[in-house]
Design a binder for these strands. Sequence first.
DNA 1: TGCCTGTCACTTCCATACAAGCACCCGCCG
DNA 2: CGGCGGGTGCTTGTATGGAAGTGACAGGCA
Lengths: 222, 222
Amino acid sequence: MQSRGDQSTAHRIAADLEIAILKREFENGVRLDENELSARFGVSRTPVREALGRLALTGLVVQMPRRGTFVRQPGPAELLEMFEVMAELEASCGRLAARRADASQVEAIRKADTACGNALPAGDPNAYYAENETFHQAIYDASGNRFLVGKALRLQRRLMFFRQMQLHLRGRPAESRAEHAAILVAIESGDGDRAATLLRAHVAVQGEKFHSLVVHLNRNEW
Amino acid sequence: MQSRGDQSTAHRIAADLEIAILKREFENGVRLDENELSARFGVSRTPVREALGRLALTGLVVQMPRRGTFVRQPGPAELLEMFEVMAELEASCGRLAARRADASQVEAIRKADTACGNALPAGDPNAYYAENETFHQAIYDASGNRFLVGKALRLQRRLMFFRQMQLHLRGRPAESRAEHAAILVAIESGDGDRAATLLRAHVAVQGEKFHSLVVHLNRNEW
DNA sequence: TGCCTGTCACTTCCATACAAGCACCCGCCG
DNA sequence: CGGCGGGTGCTTGTATGGAAGTGACAGGCA
């Protein structure tokens, strides 16, 4: 079930665990037993330990010395903070993209936008989600700052399931598409501040999006 | 993320190596030999491996499977990108702080600013650097977003030695202080956009700062 | 002479064994 | 009856040995 299977075992374990935690398959505070994990993955404890150490550094688990490692699921408050940072990162990308994007990069953004529009009538939020991601990715690329792109991608990955969730709100995909259009115009006209402001509002969690987030968190459907 | 009270050897090794790399005590591309490191630290290879794995995740070293781990010192181009992200993060903190800071937090920023002013006549860039850090830290705290603060602190730590270096430019501390004053005013008056713009310019690497950076990089004095 | 191939040494990576520390539990004492 | 202290089991952290993979080098072939 793992696509990139030629990697070293420790990396594979870390990747699998990361996905599982991101999918909220573990409750907050659950202890990850090294022996149990080593049995489940069919390897010894050493690679499991390395994988856990890696995960600890990204903040998905916390390691208490001589106590063990515990998964750390962000609650609503921290999730809001993370979305706020996501919004700021995207805003920064947009600001830079508006100033630096060359013709082909603007074209890529425009193309992704129309693809979003085409995915809209199908009414499948997951299909829209995929196109939506390439739209944002195109803006990342146009920012011309690979370090910034790396940070944005990592956080996006971490919030993936929640962003996907939000698109299941009735009417949200259409709304999202409209916001994309305005962002595209701002970038085309080279207005960095406006692109930043629009992107910040586009990603931020407000109003209905906030309610939906909390409800799903409580129902634990994610 | 938590490096407090580490009795464990692996964490200590990771911390020591991180400092050494940040101080540019290793050239770019140098291979970190597990045997050599284990001998130097007087421990076995296992904790060394864990430490290297941790460092790989932060991007300070890269691990090529079955080949080894190599230190990865950012060149001028990437360093510029990192400073640009730092500027954006600080700008975000400033924007939020202008809106959310309560009286005591504003007071803390003001106090740090005057401390910077007091450290100025001594003419010691390192003394000014310390006060400068608490000024920025005060703004971080006032942003009210702990996740954002964590990201800012980590990047600040990574760029520490370069930020310190810049203050050795003749006249830079006084210039910095003047910019601080304007930032303080913007936050006091609740003008988030202005605070963001000022902070972005304050941190960004431009003009003389850029030249100084490249020169020091080439002389390899850092 | 240039290229290919087989072998070798070195290194990483995983498995297993051992030591040390924390938590829990039970009995004891106030 | 409640708080406390020591023993015990389970867990983590480290050490070490072995297996597998990679790069380099030398020798043979075209």
